[in-house]
Structure formats: C-alpha cells, structure tokens
Simulated assay, not measured.
Amino acid sequence: MMHRKINCGGAGFLEATSALVVLTLCLTAGCAGRQYGHLLADNDKDLVGSHAAGAATWNPLVDESVAKLLSRCPPAIQPVGFQMNHEVVSIDPPSDGAHLAGGPATVCFVGIENKSAEEIGDFKDQLFERIDSQINEHGEFRGISHRMVQTALRETRLRPDSLFLPENRQVFASVLGRQGTPVDYLLFATITSGTTDRNKSSQRDYVLTLEMVNLHTGDFLKESAKIRKGYSKSRAGKWWNYGPFDQADG
C-alpha cells in the first residue's frame, strides 16, 4: 500500500494561517479605517467613556440635580380671601410671590459654566437642552427661550455672572419684559471636578450644581449631584483600586 505524504509546510498553509490571523485581528480590534454603528434601545446602558465623562456621567447628574432643585422651589402662591357682599376680599398682604398665582413660574436658564478639568465639547449644548426640557416638563415651571435670553444679554451687554447684582438683574429682566417674557427665577449651572491620582490610576469626582435665584427677592437655592469615576491604564487597575466586584466599566 502506498502512503501519500501531506505537506503542511507549504505556501498554502502559510497563506491560510495568515488569513486566519488577519481575520482574528479584525474581529477583536477592528480593521483600520472602518467603523461600525448600531442603534441603541431605550433600555441599553450608556457607553462609559474611557478618557473623559460621557453620557453615563452627565445624564444622571442632570436628572438628579434638576429633580432636587425643583422639589425645593416654592410653588405658585394662591392668595387667601373671603367673600363679603358678593365681593371677594383678600386677607393676605401683597408678596413678592403673588405674581406666580396666575400660572407657572418662569425660569430664565442663563447658561452653563464649565470649571472642570475637562473640555465638555458638544455635551454643553446637550446638557443645556436636557435641563431646559426637564424644567418645561414640570407643571409649576416653564422655561424662557434660550434665543431670547441670548438676545437680552447682548442688548444689555451683561455677562451671566454679572446678573448676581440686583441692578443688573432688573435691567436684564426689563429687556425680557419688553419682549413679553416676565422673569421669576434665574437659573445658573456650574460643572466642577476634583481629581485624585495614584500611580497610573486616577479618580475624578464630577459635580453639577444648579443655583436658582428669585429675581424679585434675591433669595436663592442651590442643589448639586455628584458622580465618582475611576480611570485606569488596564482593567486590572480597576480591580486593584476598587475591587473585583464593581460594576463593569468601559
């Protein structure tokens, strides 16, 4: 019987091996110059950024801080009265909040100031819209058009931080009032961060602070939300710093 020798070291074997290696690299690391996308469902988790804050950081910060702030703001004031000779007589003295009785309070969202260690890029506009939308979804508050706010700032030549002075607030409010938009509250948002480094790992604490100023009294409320995020050069660094049973990260 003749035995046929199979040559496994020829050019065909090398080509097949090379193709398998290239295919494996493409599947694991992605072929150079190519990018793939897919739509996310509402219940899909946000992607966790590997080098900076992203949707998984900013969205919860907005949701928590807005909910905490609006829950503390005083509701619209309804004056108490009694009826005498078919005429309603008020027994409450006029107050700074009495103007809110006719409807929801108007909130002028001035802007977002980034004091963190990161550039937030296109997230700044998205954060603004997310905060503004949640204000308008609340039954006792309604926002003022951002375009009108920017126009009033240009006309008065005022910076957002200068609105903390009473005389500047009145000038700014009068301009919006002439446009048919009375103002009850001014809203300011500030982003800050604090970084802790340890060898090749770091932790960054992100804080979003919202400050609501009553235009008529100058009283203000502040609420904030914080998210801590760890950064490591390797996945093992995360386990070393925070333990192996922490939530999966990106």
Rank of each mutant, 00 (worst) to 15 (best):
S224H: 12
L187N: 07
A236M: 09
I227K: 11
K238Y: 14
L208M: 04
T192C: 09
R178H: 13
S234Y: 06
K200S: 12
T195F: 06
V183W: 06
V183D: 03
Y206Q: 02
D219V: 08
G218T: 02
G194R: 08
F245M: 10
F245W: 12
L208R: 00
V207N: 11
D219I: 05
T192N: 15
K222G: 03
R178V: 13
G194P: 00
K233L: 13
G194L: 05
T196V: 14
V207K: 15
Y206P: 01
L215I: 14
K226M: 12
S193F: 09
N241E: 14
Y231T: 00
S234L: 06
K229T: 11
S201C: 10
A236Q: 13
T181D: 13
F220C: 06
I191R: 00
T192H: 11
E223D: 13
R198S: 14
G237A: 04
K200Q: 12
K233D: 10
D219M: 11
G237P: 08
E211P: 02
Y185I: 07
M212Q: 05
A189C: 09
P244K: 09
T217Q: 00
V213W: 01
K238C: 07
S202G: 12
L208P: 02
T192Q: 12
L215Y: 05
V213S: 00
G243S: 05
W239G: 00
A225E: 05
W240I: 12
S201A: 14
Y185M: 07
L186I: 03
K226G: 03
D205Q: 14
W240T: 11
K222A: 08
V183F: 09
N199E: 13
K222Y: 00
R228Y: 03
R228H: 07
W239N: 06
A225N: 08
G230Y: 04
G218P: 02
T217N: 00
L186G: 02
T195I: 15
T196H: 09
V183I: 12
S201P: 04
M212I: 06
F245E: 12
I191G: 01
I227V: 15
G218N: 02
R178W: 07
G230M: 06
A189F: 10
A189E: 03
S202D: 02
L208Q: 01
E223V: 08
T190Q: 12
S232C: 14
H216S: 11
V207A: 10
L215T: 10
T196W: 08
G230R: 09
F188C: 05
M212K: 04
S232I: 03
L210A: 03
Q179K: 13
A225F: 10
T196P: 02
D205Y: 05
K200A: 12
P182K: 05
Y231P: 01
D219Q: 15
S193K: 11
Q203T: 14
H216G: 01
A225C: 06
S224E: 12
K226W: 03
S232Y: 03
F188W: 01
D184Q: 04
A225D: 05
Q179W: 07
G230E: 01
K200R: 14
L210K: 05
L186H: 04
Y185R: 09
W240L: 13
G218Q: 01
T209M: 05
K226H: 08
D219A: 15
S201H: 05
D184N: 09
L215H: 10
G237Q: 06
G237C: 05
K229F: 03
T209A: 03
T217I: 02
K238T: 10
